[in-house]
Amino acid sequence: MIVRYFASLREHLGCDSEDISTQATSVDQLITELSQRGVIWQELLADNPRLQIAVNQQIARRHTPINDHDEIAFFPPVTGG
């Protein structure tokens, strides 16, 4: 599964993209798993009420189901235009 991070999340986590193997079957489970990596991960993912999620480049929510072939992305609220 490809997990991508953008903007401030990418900078704070020091990672733009990673290929991980996980048993997670929902975004929420993936967030819980990644948040065990440390305080900053916990703060920016599990405890972040403004966290935005995309699954296969479509806006998703924490309960969205995921599988091994999906591309998951985490990012802050968008600020284009």
Binding site: R50, A54, F75, V78, T79, G81
Partner: peptide
């Protein structure tokens, strides 16, 4: 649309808040 702005100011750089 997934765009994010980062501003560089004389005091340093920061991401623009929504």
């Amino acid at each position: 649309a997934p765009f994010w702005k980062k501003e560089q100011t004389p005091d340093g750089a920061h991401w623009v808040d929504a």
